[in-house]
């Protein structure tokens, strides 16, 4: 069997290779549930303060509300992002990003690559930036952001964040219309493993859990506990474990929302509670960073 370029796993390997060569620390996924690669402390916390930083990693991301029981060809409750964070944002960064696309097999002379305005915002962690969504033949394959603030704190220097939507990118490269048909290992015939083989059951079961079975009372309690724990840890100057509690709270909130038990007004108040945790954590982390200097 010949391994075909562009298997899902190979795209990841190629991206790691490209950014590793550039000088990024290839770190591993964070081991707590997060809604996006941005929430990995290697991005959220490291984007703060004056120190230079370069890292790249894959981050499994959970968005309970986006689950579709494995029936929608494009929506997933769990998917992968490839995340690059570079501080300060380098000159020529667009060329660098385009080179990374070429490196994973996208010919920029016969595909229509476009930088379309999309200012990114994550209200739960008080983060905002300016940038674009990147289109490849009309499909959004990456998010490109110059961080302007995190945890409500202005970023100086400014970090560049690149987020590749790995499934979407692989679908464009492989010309596949259903995410579950993606070739995972790049092999053919009996040895071929698809995205569906790996994840279809997960999508079915997690959708059922998030939409039907998650015990809301427990989750409300868990949210409260995480919130209290985070506040306590900030008081004792432990921003890193405090941050874990903050993203846990965020995840519990996401499940509660998927479960449909949070009203519009409550929603705003929960978001602002998580943001308060994120902000306090970021402030504490930054204080320590500045003391170390």
């Amino acid at each position: 069997m010949v391994q075909k370029l562009g298997g899902f796993q190979e795209i990841i390997l190629k991206l790691q290779e490209f950014w590793g060569k550039y000088g990024c620390a290839i770190v591993q996924p964070y081991d707590t549930e997060v809604g996006a690669g941005t929430l990995h402390p290697a991005t959220t916390l490291r984007a703060l303060g004056p120190k230079s930083w370069k890292a790249a990693y894959v981050q499994p991301s959970r968005r309970p509300g986006d689950g579709r029981y494995g029936e929608n060809p494009n929506r997933l409750g769990h998917y992968y992002q490839f995340q690059v964070i570079i501080k300060p944002s380098p000159p020529n960064s667009q060329e660098l990003y385009l080179d990374s696309l070429r490196h994973i097999g996208i010919d920029t002379n016969s595909n229509d690559i476009r930088f379309v305005e999309d200012d990114w915002e994550n209200p739960t962690i008080g983060a905002a930036g300016l940038g674009w969504e990147i289109w490849c033949n009309g499909a959004e394959v990456s998010q490109y952001t110059y961080f302007q603030q995190v945890g409500g704190i202005p970023c100086k220097p400014v970090s560049l964040e690149l987020t590749y939507g790995l499934e979407r990118l692989a679908m464009v490269i492989q010309g596949v219309e259903n995410v579950y048909d993606l070739n995972w290992n790049g092999l053919e015939g009996d040895e071929k493993i698809t995205y569906g083989d790996v994840f279809k059951k997960n999508e079915q079961q997690f959708s059922a859990y998030h939409f039907e079975h998650a015990s809301t009372e427990n989750l409300f309690l868990q949210f409260k506990h995480a919130e209290e724990e985070c506040q306590k840890l900030i008081k004792v100057n432990l921003p890193l474990p405090a941050y874990d509690q903050c993203i846990k709270a965020s995840h519990f909130f996401n499940i509660l929302e998927a479960r449909g038990v949070i009203s519009v007004t409550e929603r705003a108040s929960y978001i602002s509670r998580v943001r308060a945790l994120a902000k306090a954590t970021c402030v504490k982390w930054l204080d320590q960073e500045l003391e170390d200097n």
Binding site: P88, L130, Q148, C155, P157, V158
Partner: peptide
């Protein structure tokens, strides 16, 4: 309408 900083 919106402007930004980059680098340092």
């Amino acid at each position: 309408p919106k402007s930004m900083n980059w680098g340092s």
